[in-house]
Design a protein around this nucleic acid. Sequence first.
DNA 1: AAGGGGGACAACCGCAACGCT
DNA 2: GAGCGTTGCGGTTGTCCCCCT
Length: 324
Amino acid sequence: MGRAPCCDKANVKRGPWSPEEDSKLKEYIEKHGTGGNWIALPQKAGLKRCGKSCRLRWLNYLRPNIRHGEFSDEEDRIICSLYVNIGSRWSIIAAQLPGRTDNDIKNYWNTKLKKKLMGLLPLSHQRKPPFPSSQHQNPPPSPSMYSDYNCSSSYYIPQTLSFTDLEPISLPSTNFASTSCTTTSLSLPFYQNQDSTVVSTSAISPMQCYYPMFGSEGSCSSSDGSCTQIKQEEPGYQSYMSTSFDEFNNKAMFSYNINGRGGNINQWDEKSSGCFGQTQTPLENYYDLEDIKQMINSGSSSFINIDENKNEENCMYYYPDECN
DNA sequence: AAGGGGGACAACCGCAACGCT
DNA sequence: GAGCGTTGCGGTTGTCCCCCT
């Protein structure tokens, strides 16, 4: 015998919500809250809907401060950089975009952004010889190197997604609390963009394993509306994302931290983290278009996001024919 | 004007995780 | 620890709308 259905499907309305249903649900929740029980809510609110349907409707459309419509370039950039790092964890991605829902972002990615990204990637790229590993010992390029970088035709992060505002920042050593991996901080360059989202510019290995990074408090995109909504636009709100390498276990580590309490950018607010891979991809290995396509098509992720070596000089090294 | 195709987006489904008893 | 109910999440589907022929 299988699981009992969450609601009596014969007696619930399905399909698009009417304005009357919307106002009933909104009114009820604003008055009484969700009561922590979505299953019982529709009956109390006088709705012939499944609890799950009510929850979805509230979270995606009725709760306050929802934003719909055009995504900005900045949002595109955040979505892309997160997607290539953590894959289709839409709720986590949504948590970084105030007012956006995971469903919205998922739809946007599937219908537009993925195509946009793919369309902007030149088809002529073939795998190029690896960049000399000695380059990685160099200090990270200065922000001006990104600003001046003008090789969009051969840069596999489209220029609209380029991180021109990145500045190197220092991050404290990480303490991974929830995995078996003991870690040491890896001296990979990290860059901070204008909204304080920290991105790693290092190449990391394809995902082999991953653990949820934080609990429900980290995301309001799918919360019940009663949570403390993370507002990135609030002064002092910071979010961190980084990679490091577990030398002992030979694992690339990924960590993503939320500090919603107005802390310092350098304050490392401990939350759980995840293992990115069982083996480290040598830093001198880079992905070309076919890799990215394959990963997107296969649903894999956590491939390279931003490459610290994609400066003008390296562009010449990789794609001399396309760098004028 | 009709209708076929494709894109966009809202909603549903199923499963895993979580929490309570 | 087992069992059960509920929630959260991501993949998928359904439907509407617009454009093209």
